[in-house]
Nucleic acid binder design. Structure first.
Lengths: 111, 111
DNA sequence: AATTAACATTGCAATATTACGATAAATAAG
DNA sequence: CTTATTTATCGTAATATTGCAATGTTAATT
């Protein structure tokens, strides 16, 4: 079937899965890191930075935009992308909440 | 083509992408949360907990085991799964490093 | 107006993921 | 020894993802 049964899971679980997909490809990780580093960027820069075709990068950018991790502003014939601060903060919180459930002392001698 | 060009990216970027895949499906998120909550569990519990077929859950467990997020110990005819503390800690660190690059003041009025 | 530049979109091929029934393997129970 | 019980694996179908050439689209340049 190949289709995720989202109705079986909570909104939060589905949200985490969606957010995780933003990071689930090294090209998107690279794009995000580049945006974080340069605080804004132009699509063309990324074609130089990563070794992927323009069409491929444009596709990854659209996926990140769909998840609202990034946002783009048209500047003449160019597009300036940057991190969506609000969403970034939410994603950060979701993951932090997940990771803070870690209790080394309890888990160390589990199995 | 559908095959990720891992050689274009750094080891760290590929690692983050791999770790993110563990969370990139709500069923795996649910499994991880259940393991965190109960600190150990039996596969069969999950078939009751989630609404997926036994084969599907077993497959998700194997994926999590492949990424080393969880580990399983055979206990008679059952298998006890738990979080791999060491790897969990590493994943947590990687994500934390990524998220801590966030600087609201710089990003807020970007685009 | 024609040309160039920067991105987006379309269409397609290759591969990966998700899901599950059926079956196998291993231990436990009778 | 036979029969459950528990989990893994195989096979298969449906769908999703990745990648890129080709083509569109929009705006700047000439």
């Amino acid at each position: 079937m190949g289709v995720t049964k989202t109705d079986l899971f909570s909104d939060k679980q589905n949200a985490i899965a969606t957010y995780a997909k933003a990071f689930a490809h090294p090209a998107r990780v690279a794009i995000i890191q580049y945006l974080l580093k340069s605080n804004a960027c132009i699509n063309g820069d990324l074609v130089q930075e990563l070794g992927l075709a323009q069409a491929t990068i444009s596709q990854h950018l659209r996926e990140l935009k769909d998840i609202d991790v990034i946002q783009g502003t048209i500047e003449g014939s160019r597009v300036s992308y940057c991190i969506n601060a609000k969403r970034w903060s939410e994603i950060s919180t979701q993951f932090a909440q997940l990771f803070e459930q870690y209790e080394p002392t309890t888990l160390d001698d589990c199995c």
